[in-house]
Simulated scan of single mutants.
Amino acid sequence: MATVDIAVPHRITRTADAAPALTTRKPKRRRLGPGRPIPFGIAIGPALLIAAWIAGSASGALDAETLPAPWTVAQTARQLISDGTLQSNLLTSVQRAGLGLALGVGIGLVAALLAGLSRVGEALLDGPIQIKRAIPTLALIPLFIVWFGIGEQMKLIVIVTSVAIPVYLNTHAHLRGIDGRYVELAETVGLSRWSFIRRIALPGALPGFFLGLRLAVTIAWLALVVVEQVNATSGIGYLMTQARTYGQIDVIVVGLVIYGLLGLFGDIAVRAVERRALSWRQTLGD
């Protein structure tokens, strides 16, 4: 009997070389934060304001009697610098604000530590500070004048009391917001109270302290504007008061620009120190 050979087709197999190259692309990680900071980004906003000021003055949209042109203000500033008026008054203002800021920050920090680390301290300090927080500084000036007169002491006390509040509030809030697990860990390993304060409490309160410090720098200049217009004989506020009496709007604008620059540069300095001190913390935009 004849046999029939049936040809079985060979199985087609692909070698590794014949296989198409598969490349796996790693998904791009999307950042949810604002991204890296733009170099000199903080100057963009003020630069746009100045550009709008220049454009409005050049086009006539801004009345020179209401807001002098930037070149007029620059010329007035040059004259004040040439006769030494601006430097002497600026030095007085910086000294007042600097001393008031230093004392206010120190007082606010000590009060926050006492209230944040002790129930007795909180019971004694938190209520009066919250009351002061609710009373505007302008409302206290007449009373401070009666108590301390109209000299430098009154001006310094106004700045100190205004500055201490934001430092206290933010530092105290972060002290009270420390994770309870860290407290339990400190108790477990047997940390002393001083070690707990130095290693856990103070580092945990630093972000709040720097936030309060940034607010305090701005508030120091705001308080200075107010007190330097109360029977002052020197300072940028005094210069602006004299200019108001004689209708010198350009001098008033020079004073406002100086206050604004002092506040801006003060905030930049605090943020630079904050970034260095809190370099261990991962934040949005890092």
Results as ranks from 00 to 15, higher is better:
A69M: 02
L114A: 12
A19Q: 11
I252M: 13
I252N: 08
D250S: 10
G204R: 08
E274V: 07
I44Q: 02
V257K: 01
S234N: 15
R11M: 08
S93F: 11
P166K: 09
G285C: 05
I200V: 14
L206V: 09
T218R: 10
T245S: 14
T13Y: 10
V273Q: 01
R199Q: 13
G235A: 12
A134N: 03
T92E: 00
I107S: 07
T24C: 09
N231V: 11
V226F: 12
V146E: 07
G108I: 05
E228N: 05
I219S: 10
L114N: 03
L143W: 13
A223K: 09
P68A: 04
I129A: 02
G208Y: 07
A112H: 02
R275E: 05
G255N: 02
L278H: 04
R78S: 14
A74E: 02
I129C: 01
V105Q: 05
G84S: 07
K28Q: 14
R214L: 07
Q242R: 12
V94F: 12
A43Q: 03
L206D: 03
A232S: 09
V217F: 06
T24G: 09
V105W: 08
Y168F: 15
V270Y: 04
R31A: 09
I268C: 01
V110Y: 01
R25M: 12
H10V: 11
A139C: 09
S192D: 03
L224T: 15
L215F: 15
H10Y: 11
I141L: 12
T3A: 14
D5W: 11
A77P: 04
A272P: 04
V217M: 15
G266R: 06
